[in-house]
Simulated assay, not measured.
Amino acid sequence: MSETRRAGAGDAAELMRLRHVMLASMHPGAVTAGSWLSAGVPVLERLLGDPAEPLAAFVVDRPDEPGLAACVVGAVDQRLPGPRDSSGLRGYVYNVATDPRYRRRGYSRACLTALLDWYAGRGITAVDLRASAEGEPLYAALGFVRTEDHPGMRLIIPAR
Protein backbone atom coordinates (compact mmCIF):
# COMPACT_ATOMS: atom_id res chain seq x y z
CA MET A 1 0.00 0.00 0.00
CA SER A 2 1.31 3.44 -0.91
CA GLU A 3 1.83 6.04 1.78
CA THR A 4 -0.69 8.85 1.47
CA ARG A 5 -0.85 12.11 3.31
CA ARG A 6 -3.36 14.91 3.51
CA ALA A 7 -2.33 17.73 1.24
CA GLY A 8 -1.72 21.21 2.57
CA ALA A 9 -1.64 24.69 1.09
CA GLY A 10 1.96 24.14 -0.03
CA ASP A 11 0.80 21.42 -2.42
CA ALA A 12 -1.50 23.72 -4.40
CA ALA A 13 0.73 24.20 -7.46
CA GLU A 14 1.39 20.46 -7.78
CA LEU A 15 -2.31 19.69 -7.36
CA MET A 16 -3.09 22.06 -10.22
CA ARG A 17 -0.34 20.45 -12.34
CA LEU A 18 -1.93 17.04 -11.78
CA ARG A 19 -5.38 18.48 -12.54
CA HIS A 20 -4.00 19.52 -15.92
CA VAL A 21 -2.59 16.00 -16.42
CA MET A 22 -6.03 14.53 -15.68
CA LEU A 23 -7.98 16.89 -17.91
CA ALA A 24 -5.49 16.58 -20.78
CA SER A 25 -5.69 12.79 -20.64
CA MET A 26 -9.50 12.92 -20.68
CA HIS A 27 -9.61 15.39 -23.60
CA PRO A 28 -6.43 14.91 -25.68
CA GLY A 29 -5.50 18.03 -27.61
CA ALA A 30 -8.39 20.04 -26.19
CA VAL A 31 -6.92 21.13 -22.84
CA THR A 32 -4.03 23.55 -22.80
CA ALA A 33 -2.11 25.09 -19.97
CA GLY A 34 -3.18 28.63 -19.30
CA SER A 35 -4.20 31.17 -16.73
CA TRP A 36 -6.66 28.69 -15.21
CA LEU A 37 -3.70 26.81 -13.73
CA SER A 38 -2.28 29.81 -11.89
CA ALA A 39 -5.79 30.96 -10.91
CA GLY A 40 -6.37 27.61 -9.17
CA VAL A 41 -3.29 27.83 -6.96
CA PRO A 42 -4.55 30.55 -4.55
CA VAL A 43 -7.99 28.92 -4.45
CA LEU A 44 -6.45 25.62 -3.33
CA GLU A 45 -4.06 27.39 -0.95
CA ARG A 46 -7.03 29.05 0.78
CA LEU A 47 -9.22 25.93 0.86
CA LEU A 48 -6.47 23.54 1.97
CA GLY A 49 -5.08 26.02 4.48
CA ASP A 50 -8.30 26.13 6.50
CA PRO A 51 -9.36 22.83 8.12
CA ALA A 52 -12.90 24.20 8.48
CA GLU A 53 -13.30 24.26 4.68
CA PRO A 54 -15.24 21.29 3.28
CA LEU A 55 -12.45 20.30 0.87
CA ALA A 56 -9.66 17.77 1.26
CA ALA A 57 -6.91 16.41 -0.92
CA PHE A 58 -4.82 13.31 -0.39
CA VAL A 59 -1.54 12.76 -2.16
CA VAL A 60 1.35 10.38 -2.70
CA ASP A 61 4.73 12.05 -3.01
CA ARG A 62 7.06 11.09 -5.83
CA PRO A 63 9.42 8.40 -4.53
CA ASP A 64 12.46 9.67 -6.44
CA GLU A 65 12.23 13.47 -6.64
CA PRO A 66 10.27 16.41 -5.21
CA GLY A 67 6.65 16.74 -6.26
CA LEU A 68 3.50 14.67 -6.30
CA ALA A 69 3.04 11.31 -7.98
CA ALA A 70 -0.73 11.19 -7.48
CA CYS A 71 -3.62 13.01 -5.89
CA VAL A 72 -7.32 13.09 -5.26
CA VAL A 73 -9.33 16.21 -4.43
CA GLY A 74 -12.82 16.05 -2.99
CA ALA A 75 -15.34 18.19 -1.18
CA VAL A 76 -18.40 17.91 0.99
CA ASP A 77 -21.54 19.38 -0.50
CA GLN A 78 -24.42 20.34 1.79
CA ARG A 79 -27.65 19.67 -0.04
CA LEU A 80 -31.15 19.86 1.29
CA PRO A 81 -32.16 16.69 3.17
CA GLY A 82 -34.60 14.36 1.48
CA PRO A 83 -36.49 11.17 2.26
CA ARG A 84 -33.48 8.96 1.38
CA ASP A 85 -30.83 11.25 2.89
CA SER A 86 -31.70 12.99 6.14
CA SER A 87 -28.36 14.84 6.44
CA GLY A 88 -28.13 16.16 2.89
CA LEU A 89 -24.34 15.73 3.04
CA ARG A 90 -22.76 14.40 -0.14
CA GLY A 91 -19.17 13.84 -1.13
CA TYR A 92 -17.92 14.86 -4.55
CA VAL A 93 -14.61 13.77 -6.05
CA TYR A 94 -13.20 16.54 -8.27
CA ASN A 95 -10.14 14.84 -9.57
CA VAL A 96 -8.12 11.68 -9.33
CA ALA A 97 -4.81 12.03 -11.14
CA THR A 98 -1.50 10.24 -11.40
CA ASP A 99 1.59 11.58 -13.12
CA PRO A 100 2.08 9.33 -16.19
CA ARG A 101 5.55 8.28 -14.96
CA TYR A 102 4.03 6.79 -11.78
CA ARG A 103 0.93 5.00 -13.05
CA ARG A 104 0.03 1.36 -12.30
CA ARG A 105 1.53 1.48 -8.79
CA GLY A 106 -1.68 1.80 -6.74
CA TYR A 107 -1.18 5.48 -5.95
CA SER A 108 -4.62 6.65 -7.12
CA ARG A 109 -6.28 3.79 -5.23
CA ALA A 110 -4.42 4.78 -2.06
CA CYS A 111 -5.39 8.45 -2.42
CA LEU A 112 -9.04 7.66 -3.16
CA THR A 113 -9.24 5.21 -0.27
CA ALA A 114 -7.91 7.92 2.07
CA LEU A 115 -10.54 10.38 0.78
CA LEU A 116 -13.32 7.81 1.23
CA ASP A 117 -12.14 7.25 4.83
CA TRP A 118 -12.22 11.04 5.35
CA TYR A 119 -15.80 11.14 4.05
CA ALA A 120 -16.85 8.20 6.25
CA GLY A 121 -15.39 9.98 9.28
CA ARG A 122 -17.76 12.87 8.57
CA GLY A 123 -20.82 10.64 8.29
CA ILE A 124 -21.07 10.95 4.52
CA THR A 125 -22.85 7.97 2.99
CA ALA A 126 -22.96 8.97 -0.70
CA VAL A 127 -20.05 10.04 -2.89
CA ASP A 128 -20.38 11.14 -6.51
CA LEU A 129 -17.81 11.45 -9.28
CA ARG A 130 -17.59 11.57 -13.05
CA ALA A 131 -15.69 8.55 -14.32
CA SER A 132 -13.47 8.42 -17.37
CA ALA A 133 -13.27 5.09 -19.16
CA GLU A 134 -9.70 4.75 -17.88
CA GLY A 135 -10.70 5.36 -14.25
CA GLU A 136 -13.94 3.37 -14.16
CA PRO A 137 -12.34 0.00 -13.26
CA LEU A 138 -10.71 1.53 -10.17
CA TYR A 139 -13.94 3.18 -9.06
CA ALA A 140 -15.93 -0.02 -9.63
CA ALA A 141 -13.39 -2.00 -7.59
CA LEU A 142 -13.95 0.44 -4.72
CA GLY A 143 -17.73 -0.01 -4.91
CA PHE A 144 -18.85 2.85 -7.16
CA VAL A 145 -21.67 1.99 -9.56
CA ARG A 146 -22.90 3.77 -12.66
CA THR A 147 -25.91 6.01 -12.12
CA GLU A 148 -28.62 7.07 -14.50
CA ASP A 149 -27.63 10.71 -14.76
CA HIS A 150 -30.32 12.80 -16.33
CA PRO A 151 -29.09 15.27 -18.92
CA GLY A 152 -28.23 18.47 -17.16
CA MET A 153 -28.52 22.05 -18.23
CA ARG A 154 -26.12 24.89 -17.56
CA LEU A 155 -26.35 28.65 -18.01
CA ILE A 156 -23.14 30.57 -18.59
CA ILE A 157 -23.58 34.14 -17.36
CA PRO A 158 -21.49 36.55 -19.44
CA ALA A 159 -18.83 38.52 -17.57
CA ARG A 160 -19.85 42.07 -16.83
Rank of each mutant, 00 (worst) to 15 (best):
M16V: 14
L18W: 02
M16T: 04
T98I: 02
D85V: 04
V93M: 00
G82E: 08
A13N: 08
S87R: 15
A110C: 04
E14R: 09
Y107E: 15
G67R: 05
D77Q: 14
V31P: 08
Y92R: 07
Q78C: 07
P54K: 09
G67A: 13
A69W: 03
G82A: 09
A69M: 06
V43K: 09
Y119R: 00
L80M: 12
A52I: 10
E14M: 09
L48V: 03
R103L: 06
A110T: 05
L89D: 14
R105F: 14
P83W: 09
E65V: 11
E53K: 14
S108Y: 10
V60A: 15
G34Y: 02
P63R: 07
P63V: 07
W118H: 01
V72E: 11
E45H: 03
L15V: 06
V59K: 10
D99Q: 13
T113P: 03
G49H: 08
P63H: 07
A70K: 13
R104S: 15
G82F: 07
Y94I: 04
T113G: 14
T98N: 03
G29V: 02
A110D: 07
R84Y: 12
A24M: 02
Y102G: 07
L112H: 15
W118I: 01
A13D: 00
A39W: 02
P83K: 09
L47F: 11
R105D: 15
R109E: 15
L80H: 03
P28V: 05
E45F: 01
H27D: 06
L18A: 02
E45M: 00
A57M: 02
G40R: 08
V73Y: 02
L112D: 12
G82M: 01
P63W: 00
G40I: 14
D50A: 13
M22K: 07
H27G: 01
L23V: 08
E53I: 08
R62M: 10
G91W: 05
P63K: 01
P81W: 07
S25P: 00
L37R: 08
V76K: 03
P63A: 08
L112G: 12
R101F: 05
A13M: 00
R62N: 09
A75H: 12
D117M: 00
Y94S: 11
V76M: 04
Y107T: 12
R90M: 13
L47K: 01
A69L: 14
R104N: 15
V72H: 11
M22E: 01
V96P: 06
V60D: 09
P54L: 08
C111D: 12
L116D: 05
S87Q: 12
L55K: 01
P54C: 14
T113W: 06
M26V: 04
P66W: 07
L80K: 07
G82C: 10
V59F: 13
S25C: 00
V21S: 06
A114P: 05
R17W: 07
A75C: 11
G49I: 06
E53M: 11
V31Q: 01
A57H: 04
